[in-house]
Amino acid sequence: MAESHGGAKGQPAGAHTEADGGHHGGGFPPFESSTFASQLVSLAIAFVALYLIVSRVALPRVGGVIEARQNKIEGDLAEAQKLKDQSDAALKAYEGELAAARSRAQAISNETRDKLNAQAEAERKALEDQLTAKLAAAEKTIATTRTTAMSNVRGIAADAASTIVQRLTGVVPDAKSVDAAVDASLKG
């Protein structure tokens, strides 16, 4: 049908289609077979051009951008993971060092305390010994003094007793009996 249609009005083809478009009573445009050849040719040209543009330029370009972004994201994620690992390691090292320092500080403080305690103990002992010695010396002095004092007391008491007896009796008593009497009295 297309050929007979086209053939019948072959020479003034442009005029034919224009006239057809003008009064458009000729039928349903999508089924107008006289327009098929034109449409097929322009479709072929347009679609081949589109296919070439798409396959040669457009898809590699957009695909490249997407791939570059994907690579960038993966690279950044790997970098972030690396940095995180590094910071974790640093944190661990820091904690280890902190623990070591803490135990070292503990050791030093223990040692110092022990040393100071020992020193204090030694000083205390020395002082105590000194004081004990002084106390002993003082006690000795006291004992000596007391003995001396006591012997003096006996003499004085004997003198006083003989004097008292002389005054009362007018007789000078015998020194020996006075001494005996004083001794007895001191003992009693």
């Binding site: 297309a2 050849a37 034109s38 322009s42 798409v54 330029v57 457009a58």
Partner: peptide
């Protein structure tokens, strides 16, 4: 026997190709 004309349809086919090309490039 067929006359190959540049029609309004051809124009819009090229418009579509141009729009896609502009968008992608």
């Amino acid at each position: 026997n067929h006359t190959i004309a540049f029609t309004n349809s051809s124009l819009y086919m090229l418009v579509a190709v141009a729009v896609i090309t502009l968008l992608m490039l």
